[in-house]
């Protein structure tokens, strides 16, 4: 095995999602849902979505809707691209697939971990999981792609 430094010892990403997310989350959809920055490293970002009654999709069980989980994973994977390349690069989601393993446990915060595993000149390939405390027992798996655009503000 070649010697590689442990992941925790890697140098920090040139892109800090906590600052970026702080601005957008207060204004936009993520902030409205109560989404927050949690942690990041090079090529990965964790966001969290605290349980809230207004996010419920099934009133009988109190389980939150799956829509907010899509939003959580869209944001976490999107930010992971920028920590992977170390800078902000205008992009939009091209596609996203979400597999629902099980309902999120009512009352628990959902944690979304997005990873960017490949970046090309135009594309970024991402994957991630959503869980509610135990990453080995995920609520959802996601896979998606982002495409670079010229003008973020259209």
């Amino acid at each position: 095995m070649p010697e590689t430094p442990p992941e925790s010892a890697e140098k920090p990403s040139g892109f800090d999602p906590s600052a970026f997310e702080g601005i957008l989350s207060r204004l936009g959809h993520g902030g409205h849902l109560g989404m927050r920055y949690r942690a990041h490293g090079v090529g990965w970002v964790e966001m969290e979505l605290p349980y809230a009654e207004r996010l419920i999709g099934d009133v009988e069980t109190g389980v939150i809707a799956s829509g907010p989980i899509i939003s959580l994973m869209d944001n976490a994977t999107s930010l992971s691209v920028w920590t992977a390349i170390g800078e902000f690069r205008p992009q939009v989601t091209l596609d996203l697939r979400v597999d629902y393993m099980r309902p999120a446990t009512p009352g628990k915060t959902v944690i979304g971990r997005g990873e960017c595993y490949k970046v090309t000149r135009s594309m970024a390939f991402v994957r991630g999981i959503a869980h509610d405390g135990d990453a080995d027992d995920p609520v959802a798996h996601v896979a998606g792609t982002f495409i670079r655009i010229d003008n973020f503000l259209g």
Binding site: L27, G28, H29, G67, P68, D74, L96, G154
Partner: peptide
């Protein structure tokens, strides 16, 4: 604002929902 992603655009997650 509740469905906004990048400024001026709809959030992908909101339209998915």
């Amino acid at each position: 604002p509740h469905v906004m992603g990048r400024p001026g655009f709809l959030h992908g997650g909101a339209m998915s929902g």
